[in-house]
């Protein structure tokens, strides 16, 4: 598909949001939507400009993004490592999988009171929650990916003299990659969700904190702006993951036509 037609295909996805915003603006102008319930998009844009000029917005986005990525890096790499270990070793799986499955069924946000007691409202609290939230989708899907690698291909690799290292990098890991990407995209969603909740409840900086401050001062435009920025950041993360997916799964029939 050419660049232009891909652009066109992507543009279709933006038609609906733009229509919603236009309708929303019209409703606000007509007075159907009171400004203290939902401010007009233009007011939100104004807030965006104001906060951008003051540097507050960029700073808070930076703080939140850094937290999200740090938590993702910690939780994601532990989840990936354990998923690999449990996928490759029966012993490791026997030892840890039952425990992990039990922990998985606790909603990680239920730990917020405990986490605040442990870490206060410092950075560790957010990092811990994000890492915990991100851990499970990555772990579960890495494990699933490795377990679903075609045993016939593994046998072929052995017959053709691949050692364990070659077998892992040329057969097992590429075979598990589609499932790992599913886990990645899922965990990126959880990453933002967790961070927003954590920042809303306990923080002294970041997007969630900005929204809570604005609520205190009844700055509804800033509250709405924060929400919109969450949506955009989430979309950005997902697009990056999809780009990575397309680059590394070019062999997969699902990615060969677009």
């Amino acid at each position: 598909m050419s660049f232009l037609s891909r652009l066109q295909a992507n543009a279709i996805g933006w038609v609906l949001p733009i229509l919603v915003i236009a309708g929303w603006e019209a409703a606000s102008r007509a007075g159907v939507m009171p400004a203290n319930v939902l401010p007009a998009p233009s007011a939100v844009a104004e807030a965006f400009w104001r906060l951008t000029l003051s540097g507050e917005l960029i700073r808070n986005i930076g703080v939140s993004t850094a937290r999200a990525l740090a938590g993702f890096a910690v939780g994601g790499s532990i989840g990936f490592a354990l998923g690999l270990a449990n996928g490759l070793s029966r012993l490791s799986r026997g030892l840890t999988d039952t425990t992990l499955q039990m922990i998985r069924n606790i909603p990680h946000l239920a730990l917020i009171p405990l986490v605040i007691l442990w870490f206060g409202i410092d950075e560790e609290a957010k990092l811990f929650l994000v890492a915990l939230g991100v851990f499970f989708p990555i772990y579960v899907n890495t494990l699933l990916g490795i377990q679903s690698v075609d045993p016939q291909l593994v046998e072929m690799g052995r017959v053709y003299g691949m050692d364990r290292r070659a077998l892992f990098f040329r057969v097992i890991l590429p075979g598990a990659l589609p499932a790992i990407f599913v886990g990645l995209r899922y965990s990126l969603g959880i990453m933002w969700l967790t961070l927003i909740v954590a920042e809303t409840i306990s923080a002294s900086s970041g997007l969630g904190y900005m929204a809570m401050q604005a609520r205190e001062f009844l700055l509804i435009d800033v509250v709405v702006l924060s929400i919109l920025i969450y949506a955009l950041l989430g979309k950005l993360a997902d697009s990056l993951a999809r780009l990575l997916e397309r680059l590394s799964l070019g062999w997969h029939p699902a990615f060969q036509n677009g």
């Binding site: 291909l153 053709y160 691949m162």
Partner: peptide
């Protein structure tokens, strides 16, 4: 079954025979 690695090009699959 052919048992080719779907993520390797045709020539890379043949190179598996030279491991």
């Amino acid at each position: 079954e052919p048992r080719l690695l779907p993520w390797a090009s045709v020539v890379k699959n043949v190179e598996v025979g030279l491991t």
